[in-house]
Design a protein around this nucleic acid. Structure first.
Length: 409
DNA sequence: TCTGGGGTCCTTTTCCTT
DNA sequence: TCTGAAGGAAAAGGACCC
């Protein structure tokens, strides 16, 4: 049953949403630790062989540059996680293959990703924000949305005053810089935060859409990726203004009901999504790309070991987060980069490594295993909290399903 | 020199039941 | 018993994001 929306106190004020994006987050955290790399091209990625070599009696921030791995010496598979601005000047960017990056700048310094450290800094900067503005939505490790609408002073200069305050506090307490966009909604705030980087604050109003947003290329909008961008280009649409000029029904005709309507609304700067302060996870997964491609038959033992490890890590993840899973799935990627997934829904939720492994084994049996594999993953979905597991009385006997000794791996 | 890992959401296809 | 339609749920794939 629906009723007319009640007038909210907000009607008196203007909705002001901020998007905060930490500047080159991982790289900046590493530069705090290794200031001697400041201003130099540094990429983050790779694994153990990217570790700086410590010297006795020398504090880590005083290590000579010769002790750091160089990109040209990197071997193995992998992509760049992130790069400093100095490295980006060489054309290196996130998700670029290591070998390609090495060709662009062989002398770039290479550091392994240290997610524990980044998570720690993430917690710290988010705590600072919450101290100033309590309605915050997590968008990954280095991004948040903040609802400034009802924060005292949140309307001053369209939100610029609070944004500067947040920036200043984060810098004082962590030494890190961030860029903030403030706008009437999340979509525009996100775009605004990209307009002035690093360490910028950009304030947008609805009236700015035509002048500031429409000239931008389609792909600058969050939600328009490489595929849609290409399709738009083929239709002769290059800027967000080009999309905005299209009739909604024409967009729906070409992009479907949901996406077509979204393109129309988004290009006009419309976005009603609220800032969400809490959400439950939908799925948990673990996957790994092998150093070399493995064959289901020839490398059965090795694959089986990895498979089991993935399931054990998932069981541990589940335990830490306090969930059980009703669906278990596997993911394979072969040497042609073709990805296959297989899911199995279970009569009762599982949580321990053995049950996950057994269910995943059943899913795996249904997947093609002729080609060499480069990736193996296991995914848990339809998560439930142990207490709220639905009324499945078949829970005990269902495990008989899994007493299958002929698993392919 | 091929292309990580962990997610969300949406669409299409397949399967099952009535 | 067979067949087809319809609808829902599950499975599979794809696009996108950080």
């Amino acid at each position: 049953m629906t009723s007319a929306p009640k007038p909210t106190p907000h009607n008196a004020t203007t909705r002001r949403i901020a998007h905060l994006d930490m500047d080159a987050f991982f790289a900046s955290v590493e530069l705090l630790r290794y200031p001697q790399l400041k201003g130099l091209p540094v990429v983050i990625g790779g694994g153990r062989n990217a570790q700086p070599q410590p010297l006795d009696d020398l504090p880590i921030d005083k290590l000579p540059l010769s002790q750091f791995a160089r990109l040209r010496h990197y071997t193995g598979r992998g992509v760049i996680t992130t790069a400093t601005y100095a490295a980006r000047a060489f054309g290196i960017g996130s998700a670029m293959g290591m070998m390609k990056a090495a060709a662009l700048c062989p002398d770039a310094y290479l550091l392994p990703a240290d997610f524990e450290r980044y998570r720690d800094y993430s917690r710290r900067f988010k705590a600072i924000i919450l101290g100033i503005a309590p309605i915050m939505e997590n968008r990954g490790i280095d991004e948040v949305y903040i609802d400034l609408t009802d924060v005292p002073g949140g309307q001053r200069e369209g939100g610029r005053v609070i944004a500067r305050l947040i920036q200043k506090q984060i810098f004082l307490e962590t030494g890190l810089t961030c860029s903030i966009g403030v706008a009437p909604n999340k979509l525009l705030a996100k775009m605004a935060s990209e307009l002035d980087k690093p360490n910028g604050v950009t304030v947008l109003f609805e009236a700015d859409v035509q002048q500031r947003i429409w000239p931008l290329p389609c792909k600058t909008m969050n939600g328009i990726g490489p595929k849609s961008s290409e399709k738009l280009r083929n239709l002769g649409l290059h800027t967000l203004g080009d999309i905005a000029a299209c009739e909604p029904h024409w967009l729906i005709e070409h992009f479907g009901n949901s996406y077509g309507a979204w393109l129309h609304a988004a290009s006009h700067g419309t976005d009603e999504r609220p800032v969400v302060t809490h959400s439950e996870p939908v799925s948990i997964s673990r996957e790994t790309t092998f150093e070399r491609n493995l064959h289901a038959k020839r490398d059965k033992a090795q694959l089986g070991e990895v498979f089991t490890q993935l399931c054990e890590r998932l069981a541990s993840d589940l335990r830490h987060k306090g969930y059980q899973a009703r669906t278990v799935g596997i993911k394979l990627r072969d040497d042609t980069f073709q990805t296959t997934t297989r899911d199995i829904s279970l009569p009762a939720p599982v949580a321990d490594a053995k049950a996950i492994r057994q269910a995943a084994g059943i899913a795996l049996k249904r997947a093609p295993l002729e080609r060499p594999l480069r990736l193996l993953g296991v995914k848990l979905s339809r998560l439930v909290k142990p207490g709220q597991a639905q009324d499945d009385t078949a829970s005990a006997q269902n495990l008989d399903l899994f007493t299958d000794t002929q698993q392919p791996i």
